[in-house]
Simulated assay, not measured.
Amino acid sequence: MTVSDRYRTAWDGFWEQSSGEPGEPFWDADPALTAKRDLDHLTPYADRSLPIADLGCGNGTQTRFLATRFAGAVGVDLSAAAVNHARRTDPDGAATYEQLNLADPIQAAALHERLGDTNVYMRAVLHQSDPEDRPAVAATVARLVGTHGRALVLEPTGEAKEVIAAIAAQPGGPSPKLRRVKEHDLRPGEVAEGEVAALLRAAGLTVLDEGATTLAMSEARPDGTPVELPATWFVAGRP
């Protein structure tokens, strides 16, 4: 299975017209507000002597942080331009980066062959995936964790759209960061309540823990606090 041409073109266009600098995309918040906090959910279950794969790594902002907490880190993204940005902004080689179609089982199997069982960090990827691709993306998560890895999957809830709509409706209209999302046809989808857990279970994983959280964005409110989207988190693996 491969992702749609529209989806690939949209993401390539976005990253090709980006500087790749941390914080430029709407969602690219400081790891202190994102990956660092998110790992509180994963680390009680994860073997940190295993590497971690950052699925949908973009410009590698979170991947570089994850590399400081696990034996190794690899960031993967559909967009070649994103991967190039990630490599450029990691001159010390804290992590490695690869282009990968998460809906392609052959590519997923090849990555698992190279890494062995690995932990997985996947933040707000499923809602940006076409619905028909989501089972394949979940299957890639299951393939990568294998027997010993653990996955942390975070997704915005339906209420996140209301938060974004309110920001876009502020005086002056959408911010430059939000306008870029629309200009490149990055259509925020919605993952229905219960869908993430169902996808993980259908892929052969057990949901070990879950809860409510927020996803910090790089966008700030007028008072300087970061925009946060309501979200849920899931830790999954094979018991």
Score class of each variant (00 low, 15 high):
S4P: 01
T9K: 11
F14L: 15
W15D: 10
P22F: 06
W27V: 04
D28V: 06
D40Q: 13
T43K: 14
Y45N: 07
R48S: 14
L50Q: 02
N59C: 15
T61M: 09
T61L: 12
T63E: 06
T68K: 10
A71N: 08
A73K: 01
V74W: 03
G75P: 00
D77K: 00
A80I: 06
V83P: 00
A86H: 11
R87W: 10
P91H: 05
D92M: 13
A95W: 03
L100K: 00
P105A: 04
I106G: 05
Q107H: 05
A108H: 01
D117Y: 07
V120G: 03
V120T: 06
Y121D: 08
R123K: 12
Q128I: 13
S129Y: 00
D133V: 03
R134I: 03
P135H: 04
A136W: 01
A136E: 06
V137M: 12
L144V: 07
V145E: 09
T147I: 03
H148Q: 13
H148R: 15
P156F: 08
T157E: 12
K161I: 10
A169I: 13
Q170R: 15
G172N: 13
P174H: 08
S175I: 04
V181P: 00
V181C: 07
V181F: 04
E183R: 13
R187V: 15
L200Q: 05
A202W: 01
A203F: 09
T213Y: 05
A216E: 12
G224M: 12
T225A: 14
T232S: 10
F234Q: 06
R238K: 14
